[in-house]
Amino acid sequence: MSLPGRLQETFSPEEVQFIVENQKIKIFPRITTSKKRGGDSSRNNNNNNTDNEDMSRWRMLTMDGRALENMIVMKSTEVTLWLALLLKQQSKCNIIIPEWLTIKGLDLMLQYEKRNIERFSALPWDWLVVSEILFKQAADDFNDPIYELRNRIQDLKEIRQMKVLQGLKNLNESHMQLDNLGLLEINELRPFIVRVMDKLRQIHASGIDTTETENQDYDDDNDIGMGTMISSDRDASSSIPPNAMSF
């Protein structure tokens, strides 16, 4: 198979991380890339320009490269997360920890989670992934002690997991609303939710008499032959007379 079975069912956590890494994050550059802007502005660059200066410039395909072109030491700018991590690795920047990923921010979320037993706090959809990545790769950029933050993330995870478990009691054949659930949370629940709901849907559909005469009970003897036959689009074996059999 060109795609492993498990990946046909859901994303791998690494792929979720990949998706999240396309998000923007703020950094403090430790280098200045902005230079000779006056010289450039008068020049009409084209593809044939193999000038060394030019060729070493940033030309990105997944983001607007201007932010990278114009980095100035300690002047905050916004880049995609994966790039921020790369720069960080090269000691070229510090990552500005997002507001919610502080003791204060997480405590607020925890409070909300505790007060509203039926709701999820409005953590960003990538909270679990971003926090894990930054703990690991940008530990020195935090002002708060990491273990304190980790504990809170863990608490949030658990309290939300409890709510998820409650919510799963309401799985049904129709639909569910899952606002504020993070992508990693969704992703790990996906196989369970989809499988159970798909099966509930099939069971429900099987119990429904989908004939057109459904609402008019036994109004006409003529229907017994044809009308009551098709009872499910799933299974053509439905061309079977309704030997009334009920529970």
């Binding site: 450039d40 660059n45 084209n46 593809n47 490269g65 990278l68």
Partner: peptide
């Protein structure tokens, strides 16, 4: 690769 303001 045009544009001075938006070269990238």
């Amino acid at each position: 690769y045009s544009g001075n303001n938006n070269p990238l």
